[in-house]
Nucleic acid binder design. Sequence first.
DNA 1: CATAAAGGGTACTATAATGGTACTGTATTC
DNA 2: GAATACAGTACCATTATAGTACCCTTTATG
Lengths: 168, 168
Amino acid sequence: MVLYSGRFPWSNRGNGMIRIGKLTDYGILILTHMAQDEARLFTAQEVSQAVGVPLPTTTKLLKTLVHGNLLDSQRGTKGGYLLARRPDQISMVDVVTALEGPVGLTDCGTAQQPGDCQRSISCAIKTNWQRINQAVHDALAQVTLAEMRLPAVHPIHLPASRADLQRV
Amino acid sequence: MVLYSGRFPWSNRGNGMIRIGKLTDYGILILTHMAQDEARLFTAQEVSQAVGVPLPTTTKLLKTLVHGNLLDSQRGTKGGYLLARRPDQISMVDVVTALEGPVGLTDCGTAQQPGDCQRSISCAIKTNWQRINQAVHDALAQVTLAEMRLPAVHPIHLPASRADLQRV
DNA sequence: CATAAAGGGTACTATAATGGTACTGTATTC
DNA sequence: GAATACAGTACCATTATAGTACCCTTTATG
């Protein structure tokens, strides 16, 4: 009869696991909107109204995106936000990472020397998880904001260009 | 000033989004354990003790895994659970799907004809999400339970074979 | 230089989803 | 038919997400 230790050190994963929430959804929406006019300065108000997310939440997201180096900000009366890079230089990993924390890295075996983490069985699973997470990471890295960009902005329920949709 | 509709039909995603929780972790642990003796019948008690997850939670997971056709079950005094397929025939998509619901499919454009979902802007984003999810799906599909299998079962803190760990 | 507009940061609350449990029912074996 | 093990469901508690409010700092403009 095999017994692991009573506790589960490997389930106390603070972050690193794959997880996508509403806020990330909104964040992508925001970035997508801003990507339509990639060099322009947008105020938080503007973005909030355009995307339809309440202002407090929008500002929160914008701040987070600045922290993640996806947006640059300018203070003061004529301030606002703008994309830090070109849309095709922003991948979904960047976005998810900024909004949900690092994707796909567990504590074990990340920066430590690989031989150091052999003491527990849990580590074997962790290592395998890392592998999966890596795959997910790569998958997200392949999609850029430019590709997510909406074809054109219309009020809802207007048909978008067929060509643009089929490209996917 | 561009305005979407006040509500967000696309954020009421019931499932389909990527999400991995503790229970899935446990589930993989359980399957991994059972994969050591792939044709054997395990009782819930046995699994619970071996893996260190409380019995109620273990049984819940086992039931779910049966539903997901990853395990077969046998009732009665000599009953128990066993793998429904060989470990190399069970991929992580199967596991995640069984425990967290379908991965990577939104309502929009799944089984419907592709031309049908062009009426709303939200659909463009959905379609792109689908793309990301598809990538994640593929990533998970590439890893099988056989590859997750622990090299050998020892009490915790005993070093596992170095070769097995490095293979990852 | 004062004021208004806009971003920066933090702390807090409510809600929803996950995680975990208990209980009752059904099928086997001896 | 009694004991054992799975099946199913409904329930509660904990946690973390989502969302909000507040106060501070920076900058443009008159």
